[in-house]
Design a protein around this nucleic acid. Sequence first.
DNA 1: CTTGCACTATACCGACCGGTCAACTACAGT
DNA 2: ACTGTAGTTGACCGGTCGGTATAGTGCAAG
Lengths: 204, 204
Amino acid sequence: MRPESDTKQKLLTVAMDLIWESSYGSVSVDDICTKAGVNKGSFYHAFKSKSDLAVAAFERHWESKRPLLDQIFSAQIPPLERLEKYCQAIVNDQKQKYQSFGKMLGCPFCSVGSELSTQDEKIRQKAEQIAVRSLKYLESLIRDLAAEGLIEAKDTAELAEEILSYVTGVLMQAKIENSVKHVERLQHGVMRHLGIKSPSSVTA
Amino acid sequence: MRPESDTKQKLLTVAMDLIWESSYGSVSVDDICTKAGVNKGSFYHAFKSKSDLAVAAFERHWESKRPLLDQIFSAQIPPLERLEKYCQAIVNDQKQKYQSFGKMLGCPFCSVGSELSTQDEKIRQKAEQIAVRSLKYLESLIRDLAAEGLIEAKDTAELAEEILSYVTGVLMQAKIENSVKHVERLQHGVMRHLGIKSPSSVTA
DNA sequence: CTTGCACTATACCGACCGGTCAACTACAGT
DNA sequence: ACTGTAGTTGACCGGTCGGTATAGTGCAAG
């Protein structure tokens, strides 16, 4: 086929969708192949295992989100506004998924990471790597918030980890509660953790 | 057998252990039966499905933790000390599991809840119920902290949800990172979220 | 002794699992 | 036209899945 590897791309997209909607364990290779319109043999020509596909799907999903993240966390934007946009992007994403699927899906990296971290080391490492990448955005944001005197941060790295834990925790609880309500207060909770009082701008 | 249902108890305990160590999807009914020394027939005499067993195991695990929780959150203890003990209990539990299994296991309710919330409504509801029970402890604690003037809490329920999200988020990240380091800062992070400065007592 | 019942034991079910394989196709370089 | 190779196809593998069927056990009440 001409288009490089159409098959690979299709498999990655479909795998991410299916696994995000249910779980790694409950989605079979056949499920993925069927929905992607790809034969079993082609699957194993493109990826050497189901686990391998999951790792690649993680990477691809992150890459697909990067442009938006780079935009949100742009140094051109005042840090407080970055924070707002970040939280809003998460909330919007979750709401959109909720409308599509009728249920809260949470963070795919965390859901699968939490499911498989004790069993599949490669997937655990990938989930960890993505957490580390997320922390880079947050650390930079926190430093800039401190530079503007909005917060006092002696321990930037630790604070970033706390924020990430909180954000992912909220998404997990929202999934368990299967409700958007919880996640809508995300920004408020993040602000409280950072010790920022402000009602800030409207941003609407 | 005399001892009521020894079989049932054994299955519940073994199921919790195995599922906590790996995941719901990767533990089979046969695995559970073998490790519990129970035959398949007896399993399905005691529980009508694997999912049913999981729900019962959740309930049993919570009940086994209740005495400790009631003790930690006793109104006889100053609220700040309750908070410290709560965090310490979690850290100790995680460390102990880490030593036993060589890996971080996180919170079983959250791991399984996150894995199955979109697929098994009964398990989702059980996980949610346990979250609600946990919130009761936290809300009461927060009210008492406010009564002592240690924090200002207009929105007790929301604050309790935030703390629970943070705590479970930390446990999940610790599992993904497979490190105790992260979870050791739990108390510090909780204090920050509550806006309590104090280095407080040593408690060591 | 006999009946009834809670519980156990094991063989078994069809469906499905992740993964393999050899035959095949399409196309690039020669 | 010939060959090497990347990619495709679908039948097929042994094993395992959650769950069932049925026969058998020990025991307490009649």
